Simulated scan of single mutants.
Amino acid sequence: MPPDRPGGGEPSDSDRPPPPGSLAPGRSDDHAGHALRAPSRLHAFNRYEIKYLMPSTAVPELRRELARRLDVDSHGVGGGYGVWSVYYDTRDLRFYWEKIEGLRFRRKLRVRHYGDRSTVDDDSTVFVEIKQRVNRVTQKRRVALPYHLARELCDRRVMVPHEPGQQAFLEEVLDLLCRLDLRPVAMTGYQREAFIGRGAEAGLRVTVDHRVRGRDRDFHLGADAENRLIVPARLAVVELKANERVPYWLTDLAADLSMSVVRISKYCQSVEAFGRVPRSVFHVSDDDPAGAPAPAAARSEA
Rank of each mutant, 00 (worst) to 15 (best):
R94V: 07
G21Y: 03
Y88V: 00
T57S: 15
Y87M: 06
H43A: 05
S56N: 07
R91I: 03
W84Q: 05
D29F: 02
D29M: 08
R91T: 08
L62H: 06
K99L: 07
R63N: 08
R47E: 06
A35T: 04
R27D: 15
G26C: 12
Y88W: 11
K99D: 02
P39L: 12
P20T: 15
Y48W: 10
P60W: 09
S74Y: 08
A24I: 09
P39D: 12
Y88S: 05
W97S: 06
V86T: 10
E101G: 06
F45R: 09
V83M: 11
E49K: 07
N46S: 11
S40H: 08
S56Q: 14
P20Y: 10
S40T: 05
L53K: 00
L103D: 03
E65M: 09
V72T: 14
L62A: 06
E65G: 01
P55G: 02
A58I: 08
P60S: 11
L103T: 07
E65F: 01
F45P: 00
A44D: 09
E65I: 04
I50Y: 06
P39V: 03
V72D: 03
A35V: 07
S28T: 13
Y48G: 13
P39F: 09
A24W: 07
E98V: 02
A32C: 11
W97K: 02
T57H: 15
H34A: 11
S85W: 02
Y52L: 05
R47L: 01
Y52N: 02
P60E: 06
R37K: 11
V86N: 05
G82M: 04
G26M: 12
D30K: 01
E98D: 11
V59I: 14
D92K: 04
D15E: 10
D30I: 02
R64T: 09
L66H: 03
P39H: 08
D30V: 08
D89T: 01
L70P: 00
L62T: 03
L23W: 04
V83C: 00
S74P: 07
A44S: 11
V86F: 09
A67Q: 06
G79P: 01
G26Q: 11
H34N: 14
E98N: 10
E49Y: 05
A44E: 10
S74L: 01
V77R: 11
G78S: 01
P25T: 11
R16L: 08
S40V: 10
L103Q: 13
G76H: 01
R64I: 06
R94L: 14
L93H: 02
D29P: 07
P60Q: 06
R16V: 14
V86H: 03
Y52A: 01
P18E: 12
F95K: 00
G102V: 05
R16E: 13
V77M: 15
A32T: 14
K51A: 04
E61K: 13
G76E: 00
I100H: 00
Y88I: 04
G82T: 04
A24M: 07
D29R: 14
W97D: 02
W97T: 03
P18R: 10
V86M: 01
R27V: 13
M54H: 09
A38G: 08
F95G: 01
